[in-house]
Design a protein around this nucleic acid. Structure first.
Lengths: 236, 236
DNA sequence: ACCTGAACACCGTTCAAGT
DNA sequence: ACCTGAACACCGTTCAAGT
């Protein structure tokens, strides 16, 4: 115990070591259980020692996101815009899936770090060099939203959560309520041939939505779409 | 003060009063500042009194979401599927915009309440009665994701956050870094004719992405699209 | 100048003691 | 049986006292 503390103290604490330890700890115990105090204990230092390398917990989370974004593959050169964007986003998704907490933390950040900004810049560049106008690129980036980072926002699960609370809260609507939800859930459970409830193929759903958007983008690009002439909230 | 406490005590505490007070308090002080203790003080009761009506803070948040979802307009009858879905989702968005914390809280819920499930069911029903197969409806609901609740996931802002930290963290890359981001930000700031930085019309961006998806859905419906024959993660 | 123990101002929730 | 004060086991962060 004292020996381990000694050994840990030998390698000096750096911002990088703090961030990597935070990522590993969050992977291990979950983001909601991650605290400055536990992280300090994991590194064999006193909690206050962390504040030499990250000014507060928010900056720690920023840094953790940077670690994940660093795991995204560099852009593959020499392909058309669509497959370039597609591969980059699917690579971001792969990086994200390695860290269950990452999607949630990324979405909680209030302003992008330089690392995130650099990733965005490269994606924007793919559209621009692929023949998208500044105007269209702008709207297309908004339409991608967090999907650009490989994040998909699923509050629809097609498996209405065998949650004990739901049962208790609505005793009379067990059987015939939510007929359309039930229909979908039943079909999803069936066509997979797997256990009831699991059902959905997340990767398929992600690519389905991504391709739907990319195809839409391509169509607008070919049409020479422009926001000029469209109704805007603020008139000129 | 004592008078007010007296008056508040007269009307008995109910789950509904607790939830409405929580919504009002979160609107007022922000979701991160909302605590069981502050909510109790606001209602003039001891913290533990809340636990008679919500079993823990998670269930309080569930209930707060239900209040917001309750503000979504009922479906307008007798229109085609696309305008029905469009209006319902834009109504959800309007409800959400009244409560700055709502989007974040909705996305943090692990399983839908009966109220949320009922809303989902009605949206699914619009697709089904509009001629969508169970299969296509399923994937289309996934593609909508949280946009179905009026939520858009913007981590791209087109205004690279005049954050003092970013300046400090990257001193040499002030000017020429992120050229594509800068190009977009400049164009967004310009074509609005407004103050630099504000730039984007969120409502326009939301509707742009929503219509892009709905148009894509319509195209697939007309084609009689089916997931059978498409590559899936799990082969049959 | 650096480092850190103790303290501050909070949390959500449990529980036993009071009515 | 109901209600609630005090306590428990935590937080992130400040700060003054030590080296």
């Amino acid at each position: 115990m004292a020996q381990q503390t000694e050994a840990v103290h030998r390698t000096p604490l750096t911002r990088d070591r703090v961030l990597r330890a935070a990522v590993a700890l969050a992977d291990d115990i979950g983001i909601e259980a991650l605290s400055m105090r536990k992280l300090a204990k994991e590194l064999g230092v006193v909690p206050m020692a962390l504040y030499k390398h990250v000014s507060n917990k928010e900056q720690l989370l920023d840094g953790m996101v940077d670690v994940v974004v660093g795991e995204i593959d560099p852009p593959a050169p020499g392909s058309n815009w669509k497959s370039a964007v597609r591969h980059r986003i699917l690579s971001a998704r792969r990086a994200l899936l390695g860290h269950p907490w990452a999607a949630q933390v990324i979405q909680s950040r209030s302003s992008p770090t330089p690392v995130v900004l650099a990733y965005m810049d490269s994606v924007i560049g793919m559209f621009r060099t692929g023949g998208f106008s500044v105007d269209l690129t702008h709207h297309v980036m908004h339409a991608l939203g967090s999907r650009m980072m490989g994040i998909t926002q699923e509050l629809f699960d097609a498996s209405p959560a065998p949650d004990p609370r739901a049962q208790r809260a609505a005793p009379q609507e067990d059987a015939g309520e939510y007929p359309y939800v039930m229909e979908l859930a039943a079909a999803a459970a069936h066509d997979e041939g797997s256990v009831v409830g699991q059902g959905c193929d997340d990767q398929f759903e992600f690519e389905f939505a991504l391709d739907l958007l990319l195809d839409g983008f391509e169509r607008l690009r070919q049409q020479g779409w422009s926001s000029v002439g469209h109704l805007r909230g603020k008139t000129l």
